[in-house]
């Protein structure tokens, strides 16, 4: 995204890696190779990639069960992510977390949380710790539009604002709260931004399918937090290409709406802006696919967790 002529290809590749990863995850579930559920982020790649480019190394990131894109964008190795989703010992959580809980402490990926809104207070705690330890980190907390209707969102926003904590909240508004149009369940147009004023925060709405807009907004918010000026709440408009979870075809969405948003696909949008040829885009896509396939093959070859893992790490080893 800078003067480097190859920089925009790097950005594209990041989005394509996520897209291809999610496509493979969908196949794994459709083929019955994994139980449980998965929540894909096809169409929302720009939010994750823009966020990741704006943050500094070591900045804590907390996201949701729809969090493959955020964790991969922040550096989670594809093999580690696949292995976790497949429940293998080599997964980032040793196979004890799963698709909804990708975490990697070494990357300050403090977790993907599967109870709506629950991670926002935890993110506030991470930011609070930074004010006490002066580690200079800025925490980033990502959630969906449906999260704005749960109490913990409001408790956390209030506390972060009143304590002026170094945190950037990003609401990925993909217009659907699971299966329900967000407009049907909130009385305002922008579920996050229209509430920002209640916590003394600026009203920020951005195009979440524009990776550069996301990077710019998050960079500004990070700068503000870093300067001791407190939190920001960014509402990034985006769209899920698919349904809520693997079992949901998303049929409740009007066809025209889906088509409109498919035409705003973040990857094509970015490629067009930077005049990347169709041929080059396909080459990059093939590169991403190869990397994803290699990672998946390694993950599939990895063993299931040993039986001892069942009982380990309920308690810390120091305690009985």
């Amino acid at each position: 995204m800078t003067a480097n002529p190859h920089a925009h290809e790097h950005v594209l590749l990041q989005m394509l890696r996520i897209r291809e990863f999610e496509n493979r995850v969908q196949s794994l579930f459709s083929d019955g190779l994994v139980k449980g559920s998965t929540h894909l982020a096809n169409g929302q790649e720009a939010v994750a990639v823009g966020m990741a480019f704006a943050l500094h190394p070591g900045d804590p990131v907390l996201c949701t069960y729809r969090g493959h894109h955020h964790t991969i964008a922040r550096g989670l190795p594809l093999e580690s992510a696949f292995a976790e989703i497949l429940g293998r010992a080599t997964g980032c959580c040793g196979g004890k977390g799963g698709s909804m809980h990708l975490t990697d402490k070494s990357l300050a990926l403090m977790g993907s949380y599967a109870i709506i809104g629950s991670h926002i207070p935890i993110a506030v705690g991470a930011a609070w710790a930074s004010t006490l330890t002066h580690d200079g980190a800025v925490t980033c907390c990502i959630f969906g539009d449906g999260t704005t209707t749960i109490g913990s969102f409001h408790e956390a926003l209030n506390l972060a604002a009143v304590w002026r904590l170094p945190i950037v909240f990003i609401c990925e508004n993909n217009l659907y709260s699971e299966y329900t149009a967000i407009g049907d369940v909130v009385p305002i147009e922008h579920p996050a931004a229209d509430r920002a004023g209640a916590y003394g925060l600026d009203r920020i709405v951005i195009d979440g399918n524009d990776v550069e807009a996301v990077k710019e907004a998050v960079s500004l918010a990070r700068e503000r937090a870093s300067a001791g000026r407190g939190p920001s709440l960014i509402e990034a408009l985006t769209y899920r290409h698919g349904g809520h979870s693997r079992a949901d075809p998303g049929d409740y969405r009007p066809r025209e709406e889906v088509e409109l948003w498919l035409s705003r696909d973040p990857i094509s949008k970015y490629a067009d802006r930077h005049e990347v040829s169709t041929q080059r885009l396909e080459q990059l896509g093939a590169e991403a696919r190869d990397e994803v396939d290699r990672a998946l093959r390694k993950a599939l070859a990895a063993p299931a967790p040993a039986a001892e893992a069942l009982l380990s790490n309920v308690w810390s080893e120091e305690s009985s």
Binding site: S118, P121, I122, G125, A129, D135, E155
Partner: peptide
């Protein structure tokens, strides 16, 4: 919820 969450997040840091 904010009290418990803040404690958890700070403990993780």
């Amino acid at each position: 919820q904010a009290i418990i969450g803040a404690a958890i997040g700070a403990a993780m840091r």
